[in-house]
Amino acid sequence: MLGELATLNSLSIRFTKFKALLESPTVDLDMLRKLSWNGIPEEIRHLVWKLLMGYLPANSARRDATLARKRSEYEDYVQQTFGKGVETLDQGLYHQIHIDVQRTNPSIPLYQHPRIQQALERVLYCWAIRRPASGYVQGINDLLTPFFQVFLAASVTPNIRDVETMAVDAIPPAVLVEVEADSFWCLGKLLDGIQDNYTAAQPGIQRQITRLQELIHRIDAPLHAHLVAENVQFLQFAFRWMNCLLMREISLRRIIRMWDTYLAEGDLGFSEFHLYVCAAFLVKWSDRLREMEFQEILMFLQSLPTAGWEEKDIELLLAEAFMWQSLFHDSPNHLTQSTTQPPN
């Protein structure tokens, strides 16, 4: 009872702090980042995400105009692209997006509704034709959904859980259009920061995987040695971790909490900090993995037992990642030592 009260109390103090920050004419983004690191209250998450993504200006007087402009710009894109019917689209690209949207978050009812699926298709298609260097890559559909769900929840119900099962037909068209537009711009900003994850041969991911292996070599040598002895290549499991930012490993609602911290980490949240999260994530299973042989390891890593994870599990993971980052990030020597003896 007392514990609950204390929790409620601290939540309300946090909420008040956020409120105070957000109500100032120009939001102090550094402070906002600091505060967001430990999680953002649901009621204001949409606003904080948009500010931290740099989609909304810190100056509150300029916000409405910016939003209106961005939303109308997106509406123009949609009109230009889809106005003449889907037959006029690049059929290869459209087909790939279409089949992937159909199988996005299959366990969440919201994403099974044709209205929602069409909205996601429009965002992904409009984005893909504007980024010819990468284009649409499977998995980007996953990355769109945290934005979409947070922004939609903000407009129709303050709760990211309830929105998953809501009556989609009840969403006013004007609301959906805005959610779609905001998601489009925020997805774009996110992907611009990790673009080389998705260009030819996906060099960003290859580099991340190499670094992950070096990190594991440093922070959990026995695990690293075991994986090497069992001929397990990091590419075999970590590719997906990088390509979908762990969205295939951790439930969408937990990912949304994780992104509070990624956004709070600034420009490198989805690349640099994510790397340390992956390291902390792998090390979490170290005891079990070290008991396993090749086949078991791969099967285990393909479907990790994270279904029961709660917010506190995510927060522990983030704290561990932060610790590894503090230890290694500014100490390149920690890593160069391992490169003289390249792991595997």
């Binding site: 996005t104 998995g139 590419l235 590719f239 390509n243 979908c244 086949q295």
Partner: peptide, 9 residues
């Protein structure tokens, strides 16, 4: 089923 990313085994 979701799309396969990378490889599965």
């Amino acid at each position: 089923s979701r799309s396969t990313i990378g490889v599965e085994f």
